[in-house]
Computed example of a mutant assay.
Amino acid sequence: MTLLERIGLTAPIFQAPMAGVATPALAAAVSEAGGLGALGLGASDSEAARAMIEETRARTDRAFHVNLFVHATPPTDAAREAAWLAALAPAFAEASAEPPEALTSPYTSLAEDNAVLAMLCEERPAVVSFHFGLPEPSHAAALREAGCLLLASVTSPAEALAAERAGMDAVIAQGYEAGGHRGMFDPDAPDDRLSTMALTRLLVRRSTLPVIAAGGIMDGAGIAAALSLGAVAAQLGTAFVACPESAADAGYRAALAGAAADHTIMTRAISGRPARCLANRFTRLGETLPVPVPDYPRAYHAGKALNAAHKAAGEPGYGAQWAGQGAPLARALPAPELMTLLIDELKAV
């Protein structure tokens, strides 16, 4: 039985989890159309995550997938973090605001969140995926015992091999074109910056696991290209941001529909990890600051606060407007219509 058959899909389309942007309404719509909807739970505590799962199940009885962060928890570097906050102070002042007195971690890694793990084992989502690394062996065993299929985002053949050895059921090949956070296990390691198509083909040839291609794929032709290289499915994120079911705010939607879509950039400034974003005031600021960015996710505390201050003042250009290099191809359609169009385009190819 193929991976898609095990999940019960009729279309080889995965919606990217996109924490903070994906919603139960979006996930359910994609799943109802035959793809695999997704929820990004990495930014949620166990109660909020359970509520999102329950709401999605109220909207669909089809499978969907949930995604968790498994980043290493960084130590506090008070001097480095103070220097970063001082460097951001003028940008805060532009919005008549003050930076936080100190940074904290807004997200807890699954590696240290037993409450989320226990909730997942109770809720038994069909598919659980991991970003930034692999789960502890005991955590993977518990989820597998609960009946969950396990997927890992990888950016290199070496990471794919580690995922295979860890007993993952499939890998998501995240190319350098992809929007949002780069899923590298070690964000400070050398990055070969493999493209989606090159990485997909390498993993199809070298790995025994099914491969889901992710990064820069926006339409049926892109899905077909990934399938022609041996992927079993394609994962699309930016393509769904413009859907009314997503939680993207008005500033994000306007930027995606405008000239900013032609200029994405990989930046650490917003969160502390490399992530592809629409070029905006925050990404430009990040290129000029003379001090090193604190580690993820502690830097994100400052990034979120700076965005909130400017958003309150009517300036949307400090948001985490994650988007892949295919952003100009985004279509602002309801998710069911977009799924129908993607499937029709794929059939036409």
Score class of each variant (00 low, 15 high):
L3I: 14
L4E: 01
T10L: 05
I13A: 00
Q15Y: 06
P17S: 04
M18D: 05
A38W: 01
R50Y: 03
T56W: 06
R57V: 00
T60P: 00
R62N: 08
V66S: 04
N67P: 13
P75H: 10
E81W: 13
A82S: 13
W84F: 14
P99M: 02
T104D: 13
S105I: 09
L110I: 00
D113T: 12
A115V: 10
E123M: 13
P125S: 04
F132W: 02
E136S: 12
E136Y: 09
P137D: 07
H139Q: 15
A146K: 05
S156R: 07
A160V: 07
G175D: 02
G175V: 03
G175E: 01
D186Q: 05
L199Y: 01
T200W: 05
T200E: 04
S207R: 08
P210Y: 04
I217M: 06
M218S: 04
I223Y: 06
A225T: 11
A226F: 08
V232Q: 11
A233T: 05
L236Q: 02
F240D: 08
C243R: 02
P244D: 11
A247W: 00
A254E: 14
T264A: 10
I265T: 12
M266C: 14
A269F: 04
G272L: 00
P274W: 00
C277D: 13
L285A: 05
L285M: 10
L289W: 04
V293A: 08
H301K: 11
H301T: 13
K304T: 15
L306M: 03
A313E: 11
Y318P: 03
Q321F: 13
A323P: 00
A330N: 12
R331S: 03
L333A: 03
P334N: 09
P336D: 02
E337S: 11
T340R: 14
